[in-house]
Design a protein around this nucleic acid. Sequence first.
DNA 1: AAAAAAG
Length: 502
Amino acid sequence: MSSEDRVSKPDAGMDAPSSSSWADEATNAADASSAPPSVVAQAEQDMNDMAKAQTDGAAGGDAGIIEPSYDVNVKLSDQLSDLQADPNDPLFSTTSFDALGLSDDILKGIYQMRFTKPSKIQERALPLLLRNPPTNMIGQSQSGTGKTAAFVLNMLARIDINLLQPQALVLAPSRELARQILGVIEVMGQFIQGLTVQAAIPMEREKRPNSFTAHIIVGTPGTVMDVARRRALATQNIRVLVLDEADNMLDQQGLGDQCHRVRQSLPPNIQIVLFSATFPKQVTTFAERFAPNANIITLQHQELTVDGIKQLYLDCPSEESKYDVLVKLYGLMTIGSSIIFVRTRDTALAIEQRLNAEGHQVACLTGAFEPSQRDLIIDAFRTGKAKVLIATNVLSRGIDVQTVSLVVNYDLPDNGRGEADPQVYLHRIGRTGRFGRVGVSISLIHGPMSFRMIQDISRYFGIEMTALPNDDWDRVEALIKRVIKSSRAGSNFKTGHTDIDM
DNA sequence: AAAAAAG
């Protein structure tokens, strides 16, 4: 038997954008493209509100704190069903890192990063993760709310530093995300003397390690499967397995097989932790089979979109004109950093070459590049050396670059059958609006098919999308600029999060 | 369609 409890949320610190419903403002494509003045005025008002909230926050007051508003549902594991869920018991929910029984070295790592208090997901997830005996967890939370920090703390807390063997393993769906997680572990674990971390991702032959002996291994499924099979990775002392972006890891053809094989190469009684912003229904069964008897933290999908991200779309007069819109947006894209998402590797390359040839500096990242090349490109983007990045879905999940203030969907994400993919859409726009910052996403659409897709996405999440006028560029520019500029002021909600987390 | 393999 399992018990359930529900924690209510405080009021959001920011006004949710409210305007006419989707159906009202976009009953047909013609209306959308001509964008009635009232819609634009409303968008302008929303942007003003967001910009103001941001400025208040940056000034240090509480008024501007944009802690995302959501209810956390917790379904406790059968193993904990004999315990009463007392909200005052720090083992069930905590508002302080100090109450978790973590070592001084770990707390130092937390506070060094200027974490002050746990985020929503961390409040509930950390006590349950850290309990002994270890319990499995399936955790869902909005993008940019500190999932990575939660599972990293759990791993750090469970490492026996004197045992020089891999004891925790993290799997991620891309090399870029695996490297990012490795960076978080290094930062949070910097005061733990002797802690070692190692990446198990594709490498050029001369850079490949002969063996993997670090305390914590972070990798991609294919490489981890391979090194485990070849006994270059000793698996017998691993006691924690984390799948980041777990729905994607278990759902995708190929990835799912690899994850299961890696699981089978590990000891039977280990703690399994699955985290993602999305858990579509058809994956839930796989997840619960992969992590049996888990404590399950979920959100309503209406609560998954982040208020701080202003979602816009622009109806383009032709498919070719999308490129011209990109050129017009270029100035705005370089105020902060931007990611332009396209459907295929070929499109990414073609647009990159054309933009560069026409004097606009952009970079491009797809799975077609060599490992070392990929590392150089993402690192240049992280440091701000490259400000505009054209990418495929390789970067749709997990990548946290806090300067990203604008995400452009040059192509809307589809599921391969001509339908919208709301999960991928959510992950993509989640590359901006990181941890309380504000951000803008603009989807370029053309024709009835993409219009239907954006309509489906809007309906799926029960959110508003604002149509931008395609005949008054100055106005579009002015209102986007306002939000992007305020976004650069910095994060305005200070809880468990590093600059490179998630 | 893209991603993930040192297959």
